[in-house]
Design a protein around this nucleic acid. Structure first.
Lengths: 206, 206
DNA sequence: TGATTTACTTAACACCGTTAAGTATTTTTG
DNA sequence: CAAAAATACTTAACGGTGTTAAGTAAATCA
C-alpha cells in the first residue's frame, strides 16, 4: 500500500517538525517560556494539531530530555582514550559539570524538573534510559578503580551516589544562583573543579 | 495619632493573614498548586488586595523560603551539644538530608526554585540571609575540624562547597525521583546516609 | 460640609494546557 | 460512480494563571 506508506511518512515528518520547533523554542526560551501554543505558532498549525502527535506537553519535554542525554554523551566521546580509570573518573566529573554549565536548561530538564519523570511513569517499560546509561558508565569506572586498587574498596552504589550527588549538587546550586555568597561569581567554576578534584583525590590518597 | 497607629496595625494584620494563608496553601499544594487567586479565596478578599501587601507572587514565595530556613534551623537545635566537630559535621549533614526529605516543598523553594532568588536580586541589601547563615555554620565546623587536625588541611570554601554540594545533590536527586534505578526505593535514605558518612570518613581517615 | 485619602473591588489583558465539536478533504467500500 | 467512512486539521471553548487600570464606597482631614 504505497498510499498509506506515504501518509505515514508525512505524519512522521510533521511530528519531526514539531520536535524541531520544540528544540528551537526550548533552546531560545528555556522551560519557563516553553508553551504548546508557541510551538503551534512556529510551525503554523493550530495548537490542537500538536496534540495529534504528542499526548501532552510533558511528552514533548520527555523527548527533549532524551536529546539532552545525547548531547551529554557527546561530551564523553574521548573518555575511554584515558587508560587510568582514576583519571577517567576525574574527566567524567569535569565533563558533567561542563555540560551542566554549558546547557543549564537541558540540565534542568534532565536532572531537576519533575516533568520528564511524570511521562516516564506512564510508559509501560518505565526505564530511565538516559540516566541509567550515564550511571552505568560511572559505576563501571568506579569498579575499575577498585579492581586496580586505586581507591579504597566499598559499595559501588554508595560511591556512585556520593560522586553523582556531589557533581549534581555543584551544578544545580550553581545554575540556581545559590553560590553567590560562598565564592565570587567568577570563581564559581574553578572552585567547583577544585571541589571535585579534592573529593576524588581524597579517595585516592587514602 | 492613635488612629493611624491602629490603621497600621490592621494593615499589618492583613499582611499576616495573607502570609498565614500562603503557608497553609503552600504546605497543602506545594509550588505547583500555589496561586495568588487561591490565597485571595482563602482569606476572602479579591486577588488585587493581595497586591497591596506584596509586590508579586515571588515576594510571597521569598517570605515562605525564609520561613523554610527557620524550620531548618530548628533541626539543628541540639547540634552544638556535640563537642567533637567531626561528629558535629556528620550530624549537620544528617539533619540537612532529613529536613530535605521531611519538607521537600520547602527545600524546593530554598535551594532549587529560581523564584526566591529573583526577589532577592530586587532587594537593595541583596543578602541571602538564610543561605549565608547556614553556610556559616558549615564553614565554622569545617574550620574547627581542621584546627583540631581531624581532617586534612585545605581551602575551607572548597570543602564547604564539596560537602554542601554532595548533600544537596543527594536530597535534590532523591526528591526529584532520579534515584529510582540506582537503588531500591526503600534503600534510598539509608544509602544517602552511607554516602554522606563515606565521604566524611574518607576525609577523616586520610 | 466638601475635599482627599484609604481600602478595597470589578473588569480586563494576555497568557496557559487541554478538549469537544465541527469541517473540509481524501480514501474506501458497496 | 456515489455514499460512507476515515483522515487531517481548525474553531471555539473551559477553566485556569499573574498582573494591572480604573472605579467605588467609606473614612479621615481641612
Amino acid at each position: 500500500m504505497g498510499i498509506s506508506e506515504r501518509k505515514e511518512k508525512q505524519k512522521a515528518e510533521l511530528k519531526q517538525l514539531i520536535l524541531d520547533a520544540s528544540v528551537k523554542l526550548f533552546a531560545a526560551e528555556g522551560y519557563e517560556g516553553f508553551s504548546m501554543r508557541k510551538i503551534a505558532d512556529m510551525i503554523e498549525y493550530s495548537p490542537t494539531t500538536v496534540y495529534l502527535h504528542y499526548k501532552d506537553k510533558n511528552e514533548i519535554l520527555f523527548e527533549l530530555h532524551e536529546l539532552g542525554f545525547q548531547k551529554m554523551q557527546s561530551y564523553n566521546m574521548d573518555l575511554f582514550d584515558i587508560a587510568n580509570p582514576l583519571l577517567r573518573l576525574h574527566k567524567l566529573g569535569e565533563n558533567y559539570i561542563r555540560f551542566g554549565l554549558d546547557y543549564p536548561e537541558f540540565y534542568n530538564l534532565m536532572f531537576i524538573l519533575p516533568a520528564p519523570m511524570e511521562t516516564l511513569k506512564t510508559k509501560l517499560d518505565c526505564n530511565w534510559k538516559g540516566g541509567d546509561d550515564a550511571l552505568q558508565v560511572l559505576k563501571g569506572i568506579i569498579s575499575e578503580c577498585m579492581e586496580r586498587k586505586l581507591i579504597q574498596p566499598g559499595d559501588v552504589n554508595v560511591m556512585a551516589m556520593a560522586i553523582w550527588g556531589m557533581v549534581h549538587g555543584l551544578v544545580s546550586l550553581a545554575i540556581r544562583d545559590r553560590f553567590a555568597k560562598l565564592v565570587d561569581v567568577c570563581d564559581v567554576i574553578p572552585t567547583m573543579y577544585k571541589a571535585l578534584h579534592w573529593m576524588v583525590n581524597v579517595v585516592e590518597e587514602k
